[in-house]
Every structure is written in structure tokens, then in C-alpha cells.
Nucleic acid binder design. Structure first.
Lengths: 202, 202
DNA sequence: TGTAAGATAGTAATTGATTACTATCTTACC
DNA sequence: GGTAAGATAGTAATCAATTACTATCTTACA
């Protein structure tokens, strides 16, 4: 039974911290997550956290790095090997929703960071995440135009904004209803409208 | 110069309080707005606020009531007298964006309230606001199907979700860029895609 | 190889700052 | 002159961060 060894190497302890924050954000307002709550969730004393992070801001930075890495890897993997750009976009869409359903705290944290007025490291991480996300979308949209799947007159930037907005709309509906499962039901129906909006007339 | 009379009747003071919170939310994280900051913004001492509100929660409730009332009135007015349901939806869309551009703190506050785990009066107010918003959309979508403007096979619920999500996507892009003006530029381009997604094939 | 010394990780208690809220005194206005 | 509104000066609770000390792991060397 080595499930809860008291002493952990620093990097492992940092990883556990990040996972704790992600878990806590799934059931409470991220801005109200205290260092004491994080420590309690991982069976550690509050002060010990500061052996591994210089301050609370650094914890949030590590968390957002975790999110960016995982989310981008997930959507990249989902689109891999799919020939049709439109099908690839749909796969990205679905895997993004899947990721959010697995980690309901993620959109909460991202919204929370973006609301921040000051430019914290965590906020900057979210910004680059969305930028990278946008780059992937732009590539697919261009490919879709070239292949004739997407309307040649389509506005790339607007299409990318709407792609992300569509996901956000779904996420917010689930926040409203407090029901993550609902999202799964609505995903294909909402994406169908989006697809119709960007597809070339057949 | 009676711009700043020291003594105000209670109802006027409450109104000024609400406007102060809305203004402050435009430049900082709503969850970090303290009663001291509100009081300072309206040239009042912190303690005096509690002559007019029993507690801070009541301030937030009043603010969200203000938002719900104004936003619904605004979109209702914008759609009034427009025959075409699709044109009415577009007018609603534009006036909503206009409202947000005038009060950039509003989406911040709404996101913030929805993230809350507990069911506060303010959160419930946001929920009913979005519910009422959805009812208006559903009516228009039904009318649009009847008139032949909208695709008869359109999924009402999905269309409403996407309508709100589209606005959210735009708002988030402006939060990301820290540039509200950007929103105005993108609005028509993004709505064009949405329109194409719900319109009946011509 | 065994062990002493140092490095790493954790505990428990405390600090100063900040917060929402309150009690008491003061002023302005009908 | 009485009352509604505001100023002043608190309180108790909470928070991130720090501190002195302890436990555990790692490594160098006799």
C-alpha cells in the first residue's frame, strides 16, 4: 500500500498539486480556491505548498501550462490521420468537448483567468493556448477551402472565432444547467449548424 | 454644480451603487471588487454602503437585476417592428453586442456569477435572464420556420445555444485582446456564418 | 558496506494584510 | 427638531506567506 507516501520528490508533488487544483475547480469557483483547500485535498499542510511553488501565482501558472499541454495534445491527436479537413474539425470539436467533460474545472479556470485585468503568467498562458488553437483552425480552414469542402468566400477569422464560441456556448449551457452530460447530447446538434454555416454549397 | 451632492435619497444611492459596480467590473475582475473599492468610486465611506444594502450579496443581486432589465429591454426594443424573424434576430444580435461594448463589465460579471458553485440570488438572476433570452429566441425561430426564412429541419434548442455562444465567442475574443472595438469589426462577419447555418436553402 | 553529513520534504504555529460587516457619533435637510 | 444619510472607528474572520523545527531520503567516504 504505497498509495499515499508522505514524502514525494518535488516534481511529483508539483504534479499532484496541479491535479488537485484541476479537481477542485470542478466543484467550486476557481477564484475561491485557497492554498489551504489545495493542501487539504492532497493531504498536506498549507505551508508545505510553498516549498514547491514560490507563491500562489506560480501554482496557477503551472495549472494553466498543464491545461494548454493536454488540450492541444488531445485535439492534435484527434485530428491526426483524418484526410477531410471538415471531418478533422469535427473530430477536434468532439475531443475538445470530451476533454472539458472529463475536466469540468478547465473552462471555469480559463474564464476566470481571462477576466483578470492584470497580465498574470497564467493569463498569458491561456492567451497563447487560444492563439495556438487558432493557428490549427486556420490551417484546417485553408485546407478545407483548397479541397472545396469549405465555402471559398468563408471568412477564416470569423470561422475560427465561431468555432471556439460554439464550444463556449455549449459549456455555458452546461454550467447553467449544472449538468455536464447535457453537453454530450447537444454537441452534434450544435455542430451541425456550424458545419452548415461554413460548408460550401453542394 | 450639484453633480456631487453629499446626501442622496436611499433609492438614488442604491442606483449609484449599482452603476459603480458595473463601471468597476469594466476594468477589473468582478470577484475582486471590494466594498471599499465600490465606496471609493462613488465618494462614500465603506460603512455607509451598508445603510442601503443588508450585505454584499444584496449589492450583486441588485446589479444583476439591473443587467437583466436593461439587456432584455434593449434587445426587445431592437427587434420591435421588424417583420422578418431573421432580421429581428440580427437586430437582437447587434444590440446585444452594442450593450456589451457600452458595459464591458457585464459579461465579466455574468461569467463570474455562473462559475459560482452555490446558488446565490445573483446567480439565479443570471439564470432567469438567459432563460428569458432563450424564450425570445425560440419564438423568433419558430416564426422563422413558419415564414420559410429558416430551415424547417433546424434544431431550435441548438440554434438558440449557438446564438448565445456566438456572442460569447466574440466577447471572449475581445477579452483576450483587451480590445472592445475589435468586437464591432467582427460582429457582422461572424453573424454571417451563423445566418448561413440556420437559413433555409434558397 | 556502514554511517555520518547534508539535502530534501513536511509540520505546526504565527504573521501582517485584507475583508465584510457593525457600533457609535455627526451632519444635512424637510 | 427629528430623522435619514454619512463619517469614524472599530471587530472577527480569512488569507497567503513565513518561520523554526522535524522527518526522511541520498550520498560521500572510511
Amino acid at each position: 500500500m504505497d498509495t499515499h507516501p508522505k514524502h514525494l520528490p518535488a516534481d511529483e508533488r508539483r504534479a499532484v498539486t496541479v491535479e488537485s487544483v484541476v479537481a477542485l475547480a470542478g466543484s467550486q469557483n476557481p477564484s475561491e480556491i485557497t492554498t489551504a483547500a489545495i493542501a487539504k485535498h492532497m493531504n498536506l499542510t498549507q505551508g508545505a505548498l510553498f516549498r514547491h511553488f514560490p507563491n500562489k501565482e506560480a501554482i496557477w501558472q503551472a495549472v494553466m501550462e498543464w491545461v494548454a499541454e493536454r488540450l492541444l495534445a488531445r485535439i492534435d491527436r484527434s485530428a491526426q490521420g483524418i484526410e477531410s479537413p471538415l471531418a478533422a474539425m469535427e473530430a477536434m470539436f468532439m475531443s475538445h468537448i470530451e476533454f472539458v467533460a472529463e475536466h469540468p474545472g478547465v473552462p471555469r479556470m480559463m474564464f476566470g483567468e481571462l477576466q483578470r485585468a492584470e497580465s498574470t503568467p497564467a493569463k498569458r498562458m491561456v492567451q497563447t493556448l487560444i492563439q495556438r488553437y487558432g493557428e490549427r483552425l486556420h490551417r484546417l480552414i485553408e485546407k478545407g477551402k483548397a479541397s472545396g469542402e469549405l465555402s471559398p468566400s468563408l471568412d477564416n477569422e470569423a470561422a475560427a472565432t465561431l468555432f471556439i464560441g460554439t464550444i463556449q456556448g455549449l459549456v455555458m449551457q452546461s454550467l447553467l444547467a449544472g449538468d455536464v452530460g447535457r453537453m454530450h447530447r447537444d454537441v452534434p446538434r450544435v455542430f451541425a449548424i456550424y458545419r452548415r454555416g461554413i460548408r460550401s454549397a453542394q
